[in-house]
Amino acid sequence: MNILIIKSSPHKKGSSNLLAENFIRGAEEKGHQVSIFDAGHAKLHPCLGCDACHMNGLCIQKDDMTELRSQILDSDMAVFVTPIYYFGMSAQLKTVIDRFYSFNSELMEKALKTMLIAAAWDSNDWTMKDISAHYETLCRYLNFKDQGQILGIGCGNVSMTKSTEFPEQAYRLGKTI
């Protein structure tokens, strides 16, 4: 299976990316092909809402979303990786998802397998409620086939994250895909 990891943290060595690396290790050991798109450091612009694409065409903006679009459409699975900022996804990942507008129909028809990996400093039991609900709504709307969620609470920095069960959970999930 071709798996596309969409990282969205501005911190290349941050907690969400640590969880992603554990997932990748498991998926590659299982024999999957993994590629990475770093939305946290890509040249991406927000959707203009101009509707030039008519939800089923090319976006008029010329940025790294052109590359990501082809990577997603060539993949069997996409993994959304994000730190939690104020109980939601990073602005970088939100920008990517908003830009799906230009190829909504293709995404819906593809029935792409997806997964969410998120890391939050907070460890309250309600910390991941909203991002999980948002992701599940995206799956319903875009006909994504959810393959699981790693919702890493208490993962405020790399050393905190390493001391939780979430790196191992991510690895095991990568092995079971």
Rank of each mutant, 00 (worst) to 15 (best):
I3L: 08
I3C: 04
I3Y: 06
K7E: 11
K7M: 04
S9V: 08
P10T: 13
K13V: 02
S16R: 09
N17F: 01
L19H: 10
N22C: 12
R25G: 01
R25P: 01
G26H: 07
E29K: 14
K30G: 00
H32A: 14
Q33D: 09
V34W: 07
V34A: 08
S35T: 14
F37N: 11
F37L: 05
A39I: 00
G40N: 02
G40L: 04
A42N: 00
K43V: 09
H45V: 01
H45C: 00
G49Q: 04
C53I: 11
C53Q: 06
C53M: 08
G57N: 08
C59T: 13
C59D: 11
C59P: 13
K62W: 04
D63Y: 08
D63N: 10
T66C: 10
R69L: 08
S70C: 06
D74H: 11
A78G: 07
A78D: 03
A78C: 14
F80P: 07
P83R: 13
Y86P: 00
S90M: 05
Q92V: 05
K94Q: 14
V96F: 03
R99P: 01
R99H: 06
F100L: 13
F100M: 07
Y101Q: 15
S102G: 03
N104M: 12
E109N: 15
K110R: 12
A111P: 00
L112A: 09
K113S: 15
T114N: 11
L116K: 10
A118N: 07
W121L: 14
S123K: 14
N124H: 14
D125M: 09
T127L: 11
T127C: 15
M128A: 14
K129N: 14
K129D: 15
I131C: 12
I131A: 06
A133D: 14
L138N: 12
C139D: 13
L142R: 00
N143G: 01
N143Q: 08
F144Q: 02
G148V: 09
G148P: 07
G152W: 01
G154Y: 04
G156I: 03
G156Q: 01
N157L: 03
V158P: 00
M160S: 06
T161M: 02
K162P: 00
K162R: 11
T164H: 03
T164L: 05
T164Q: 04
E165A: 09
E168G: 00
E168I: 05
E168S: 05
E168Q: 10
Q169E: 10
A170F: 05
L173R: 13
L173K: 14
G174L: 04
